[in-house]
Amino acid sequence: MPRHDREEVARRAGHATWREAVEATAHLSQQEAGRVLGVSHPTVRAWRAELGLGVAAARPSAEQLKAAFQADAGDARHGSANGYRNLGCRCPACTSAWTDYQRARRTGPA
């Protein structure tokens, strides 16, 4: 992995200092910040950690993800054992998929 001259990276990205460059991209994910600054995302992670910034953009909670899944009837994961077990959906399709999955576990593949 190449070592980057922090100040040179900042200048190429249009910032006065590397600290300013890292702080200006703190709202982005590591991958997006890496593309903007022209470095790898592990480099962004290390720089953010050195400055005491969060290492990644905020992500939705598990409860928010489950609620969004359950509200979207067109989601391709409906009708799957994953939808029932991991995402907490109790629609008829997910319930049926879970029942079939459990039956196959007990009796073996059909």
Rank of each mutant, 00 (worst) to 15 (best):
S40C: 09
S40P: 11
R45F: 04
A46K: 08
R48L: 06
R48G: 03
A49H: 12
L51K: 01
V55C: 09
A56K: 04
A57W: 01
A58T: 14
P60M: 02
P60S: 04
P60A: 02
S61T: 04
A62Q: 13
A62P: 02
Q64V: 07
K66C: 07
K66M: 12
K66W: 03
A67I: 09
A67M: 08
A67D: 08
A67L: 13
A68N: 11
F69P: 15
Q70N: 13
D72R: 12
A73K: 15
G74Q: 13
D75H: 15
D75S: 11
A76L: 09
R77I: 01
G79K: 05
G79H: 02
G79Q: 05
G79R: 01
G79N: 07
S80C: 01
S80W: 01
A81R: 14
A81H: 14
N82Y: 15
N82Q: 11
G83Q: 09
G83M: 12
N86A: 10
R90H: 07
R90E: 05
R90N: 04
R90Q: 06
C91G: 10
P92D: 07
P92C: 06
P92S: 09
C94Y: 02
C94V: 02
C94P: 02
C94M: 01
T95G: 01
S96H: 14
S96F: 08
S96V: 11
A97N: 07
W98T: 06
W98L: 03
W98Q: 10
T99Q: 15
T99A: 14
T99R: 15
Y101R: 10
